[in-house]
Design a protein around this nucleic acid. Sequence first.
DNA 1: CACCGTTGCGTTCATATTGGTCATGGAAGG
DNA 2: CCTTCCATGACCAATATGAACGCAACGGTG
Lengths: 239, 239
Amino acid sequence: MSDIRVLVVEDEPIAAAAHAAYVGRLEGFTLAGTAPDGQSALRLMTDFAAAGTPVELVLLDMNLPDLHGLDIARRMRAAGLFADIIAITAVRELNIVRSAVATGVVQYLIKPFTFATFSDKLASYRLFRDQLASPAAGQAGPGASQSDVDQAFASLRAPSELPLPKGLAASTLESVQDFMKLQSGAVSASEVMDALGMSRVTARRYLEYLADAGTVTRTARYGAPGRPENEYRWTRPAS
Amino acid sequence: MSDIRVLVVEDEPIAAAAHAAYVGRLEGFTLAGTAPDGQSALRLMTDFAAAGTPVELVLLDMNLPDLHGLDIARRMRAAGLFADIIAITAVRELNIVRSAVATGVVQYLIKPFTFATFSDKLASYRLFRDQLASPAAGQAGPGASQSDVDQAFASLRAPSELPLPKGLAASTLESVQDFMKLQSGAVSASEVMDALGMSRVTARRYLEYLADAGTVTRTARYGAPGRPENEYRWTRPAS
DNA sequence: CACCGTTGCGTTCATATTGGTCATGGAAGG
DNA sequence: CCTTCCATGACCAATATGAACGCAACGGTG
């Protein structure tokens, strides 16, 4: 799968350079360009689209000298530019978040943010894209089911910085994640139990959480007598 | 908190009435009106906005006689109508989902859906709204933190599960459905067994369930020695 | 033309495993 | 010392499987 072309829109040169550098550090993303204000951004996107290499994702600062981020988003839609938008802002106003969602903002980053936060947001966006490109592994088909779409939305809206639900510990979750990352194939809850020395209940609880978050996919394993066993597979956002 | 004003856009009168009735059954939502096509929808929304009672949520069918749902969304944004959109469609095309997200679609419903699914989607949308209206109590300051925004986005990812008869698993049913969708002709239970790697009994049980639900039709296949074999054929889902 | 053995599939039932829930114990923090 | 939180073990519920039994059409055979 080819890289996702990213445009950085940011008026402060230092911040713009930082964001551009962040994009460069990520696998699967390519920096298409940077723009210091709204007019330049729109012109750049139009040019890229005309050249046949449209921008697919815009890191859009909401506070720009000439236009507000929401105006830019609106004009993009009016001009037929359908790039997805990740909003970046220092203005922590919730009503802006509401309007941003209505104009097709898929994620919202609040300055200042660390590279880890930035990386999480873009990784979840990439996972969303991948899941729409290739529905449920092994069950290729022309259409998608409701659960396929739900799954894709889930990975788009489920950043890893959410407070963990009751009953889950961060350290244990990390152990399970690390173990799953190393597995090439699918593993069952029992195998995780044996490998990590934890109880079956605990292993299953964390795997289930990861499945809901979209980090791992869950499929059933048939063929043997007894209730079908769930097997979990790490979903690679494509390396 | 006041109700969320909802506009239903759907060309089929029966489906429109059903969706309107669904909205009426939900706490916290008020039906603002219904529109059979894109032009009417846009006019209605403009009128409501001028009257000071703007539509806040649109249940938008993607397949309309005059305009495609994506066009309506684009024109809404161009006209300064910032209602949120829940897309409703029978077209299970993933690339449409992608474009829909870019134009500010917050949820995606695939027809046909049950009231439970519908209710879940609108409930998760309401939760999203509420969380943006009143940020986490105890957090000092007028603004929202990154985790507040993350939490609000996360509430838009609620998965929906519909109740199944005892003895049937959702994942298995989905496997069988996906397989049947791909078959152009009729297939027997044994063929499903071989293709999906499950037992004959299981394959037959799920096919029988789908036949009762009307999703597949069942006919007998004669000509070979032995008891006649049932064959199943995928039937187009109605609305 | 009627009858009967053959032949597969439909159907039922017990079984083997796993998923899910609940209450308990121990550890960490205040 | 008390409270909170999380992993655990045990129990019950769920569900695919395999085998055994029954049924209906086919194809000889009388």
